[in-house]
Amino acid sequence: MTRWAMVADLRRCVGCQTCTAACRHANATPPGVQWRRVLDVEMGEYPDVKRAFVPVGCQHCDDPPCLDVCPTTATKKRADGIVTIDYDLCIGCAYCAVACPYQARYKTMRPTFAYGRAMENETKRRDDARLAVATKCTFCVERIDAGVAQGLTPGVDPEATPACVNSCITQTLAFGDLDDAQSNVSQLLRENRHFRMHEELGTGPGFYYLWDAADDGQATD
């Protein structure tokens, strides 16, 4: 089996937002819609203040709350763990948006453009099927499927890898198959301590955050 997952090394991220820009370029999302977002988190009180940049987006959960609540079956989960939305089935009820603990879903009611009126590229890539329905990160599923069909390895070959991962200037983001013990993500998780966001909710996110090296080369959390 295959279980696609993403790993973000919080020690590496510098908050450059290149992944956000790459995602918006690859997926032509409108202003305000960021399927890959990088949080700028400041913690503590002066003088003991720390700062971290945290990439977030759809966590492609093992047990996605958005999947269960969707009344139309527009939200689906593939065997490889990727959660998708069928824009032709979605009625835009936004139930999935309130069910998602990761604020990963967006609903845009009308076309919006960066400079008020549509630029040439925005006109060219306009997709009205994505209006008034739920949208979110797809792990660039089309790239993955096309790449796998050509015998490429997602997470290794750029042509088969999500745009955000390809664009990351610090190699914060990694993508790969969790079920493959030799994959890059499996190796990273073995060698580093990690957590998943809101894990107590039992959603089983497919997005891991590395925060420290494992003491003995084997991560325990």
Binding site: P71, T72, I91, C93, K107
Partner: peptide, 25 residues
């Protein structure tokens, strides 16, 4: 009232498609 809020009212009948898991359906 809630029908006025959904984004695609013309396909509102899709709301019946997933009674297996969805409490809205």
């Amino acid at each position: 009232s809630v029908a006025l809020e959904i984004g695609r009212p013309l396909r509102a009948l899709n709301v019946f498609r997933n009674p297996r898991t969805s409490w809205m359906a």
